[in-house]
Amino acid sequence: MDKKIVLITGTNSGFGWLTAHSVAASGHKVYATMRHTNGKNADKAEALSQVKNITVLDVSLTDETSVKNAFDTIIAKEGTIDVLVNNAGGAMFGVAESSTTEDVQRMLDINMIAPWRLMKLAIPYMRKQSEGLIINISSGWGRFSAPFAVVYAASKFGLEGLSEGLHYELRPLGVDVTIIQPGAFPTEMSQKIQFGSDTSVVDEYKAIADVPGKMGTARDQMFETANPDPQDVADAVVKLINMPKGQRPLRTVVDPTTGEFIKRANEAVNVEYGNILTAFGMKGLLN
């Protein structure tokens, strides 16, 4: 196995924390990013720094200069980057109308623009070496937009839109772009959920005020039945990294609860997507 240089974002908790450990344990060199390495995440940064094959970088992904400085650090030490895992993200739930323009902008900045910022830096190096892998962590809500998750879903739709077109655009140049669609997992993200800032409209939705509670109850019941393990997402990342170039699927669903619904939707859309590319003279990019 060739040792790869891997950049993983959002490694202070959840999928990112597990993925950093798993990728490093596979023998790859990991650059793990998080914010506040000298503040609230100091303990996490210190612990991760003690792991073999991991270097921690303090990065604010919505800050152009911070991202560029981190990327330049990696290039100065390694000369290139082989794998980019865009894992960091934020979640926003609640009545969609309560989200202000600034709220929506914040979600797009975190879940779509920040990954693009990193992809824009990584792609030239990957193209130059005719090999590279970009893994974007999306969501099942990147396929379906659910009530009370509208803004979050929209941001993941955007990430999937970037990823899907790039998958076909870059594959002939030796670069794979893939999406992982996790379902609901018991991670720290549930403790960091954001809500719309315009609370003045919430009372207007009393007719469906009990729906979010029902969603939470259904989720908890699924957790009890399926016992989803966040490590499955980290394992999926490692599997994609170790797969041969050109054989990696566009989408990988990791969801023991509602994953079959997502898979069937992906398969159906994939057929029609192929028809669209064919209609516009791009059939050759499908193979």
Rank of each mutant, 00 (worst) to 15 (best):
N275H: 15
L7I: 03
E188N: 14
I113V: 12
G39L: 09
T257H: 13
D82A: 02
G14T: 04
F15D: 07
S197R: 14
L250P: 03
Q105E: 14
T100L: 04
E78N: 05
L250I: 10
L250C: 07
L121M: 15
S138K: 00
M107W: 09
V150E: 09
V51D: 00
A154W: 02
N53H: 08
R106Q: 10
M189A: 10
G183K: 11
A96E: 01
A209C: 07
H167W: 04
I81P: 00
V177N: 04
P230Y: 01
G274Y: 00
K206I: 04
Y152K: 04
Q105I: 15
E160R: 03
I180N: 01
S197P: 12
A209Y: 04
D43R: 11
T225V: 11
A279E: 10
V83Y: 00
P244N: 13
P186A: 06
F223Q: 11
T199S: 11
L162K: 02
T278W: 12
Y31S: 02
N227C: 10
M92F: 08
D198S: 06
T37D: 06
S163T: 07
P147W: 08
R264T: 15
V104L: 14
V211W: 05
A184T: 12
P186R: 10
L250V: 07
K68R: 13
L159M: 10
G281W: 11
M126S: 05
G196A: 04
L166Y: 01
G246R: 12
M222A: 10
M1T: 11
T225H: 10
I241R: 04
G284D: 12
K192M: 12
M189S: 09
Y168F: 11
D220M: 12
S98V: 07
V202M: 09
K156M: 08
H28F: 03
V201C: 08
T80V: 05
V95T: 10
I241D: 02
Y152F: 05
F261W: 14
H21Q: 08
S163R: 01
Y152H: 08
M92E: 00
N111D: 06
T178G: 04
F261E: 13
E46V: 07
E97D: 12
I74D: 01
V175D: 03
Q105G: 15
L286P: 08
D58E: 15
K245P: 06
K44L: 06
F261G: 12
A226Y: 15
G39K: 10
M119F: 06
L162V: 07
F71K: 12
I5Y: 05
F223I: 12
A234D: 10
M215Q: 12
P172I: 10
G161S: 09
V211C: 11
K3L: 13
P256T: 10
E131G: 01
E267C: 09
I179F: 01
A218Q: 13
V271N: 15
P230A: 06
I134P: 00
K263P: 09
L240A: 02
K283A: 15
S155N: 08
E97H: 12
V95M: 13
G246P: 10
